[in-house]
Amino acid sequence: MNIHDLLTEQTIFLPLETSASKEDIIRQMAAGFKEAGVVEDTEKYVQAVLAREQSSSTGIGFGVAIPHGKSAGVVKAGLAFAKLAEPAEWQSLDEQPVSIVFMIAVPEANVGNEHLQILVALSRKLIHEDFRNKLLHASSAEEVIDTIKNM
């Protein structure tokens, strides 16, 4: 399983210029998914992600948020990464603004286990500070992909 299948240049935003609204960030990243062929029906997917945010914020603390959605609008599993130019409010658990966003797209139908395994490994890794720091200081898409590849 290759990380390139999940994370492509179109879905890496270094940095993401933003008006600092949560929905705006999600929409910009969803547009990246559309370009990469991960998402077909962008609106459907965005609604799924926003619905998930409604139930409880995906801001997990440490300046990281992981919005995600499972939707019929998704063609194949995908991952998007954004380093925000300005930290954004995300109603995080620790009430700190967010500067790293990982967005996850999962199709409605059963997704291959390997994809899930990568997302699982990534989730676990995000708990560790050195991993987060590497991502925060990454200056190119390759560096981001490399960091995740070697996690």
Binding site: T58, I60, H68, A121, S123, R124
Partner: peptide, 17 residues
């Protein structure tokens, strides 16, 4: 967690740590 992709594993990792 309901989606079972992120929070489940983050919580596991952070408790283990």
């Amino acid at each position: 967690c309901p989606t079972g992709i992120a929070h489940t594993y983050m919580a596991a990792e952070s408790i283990e740590k």
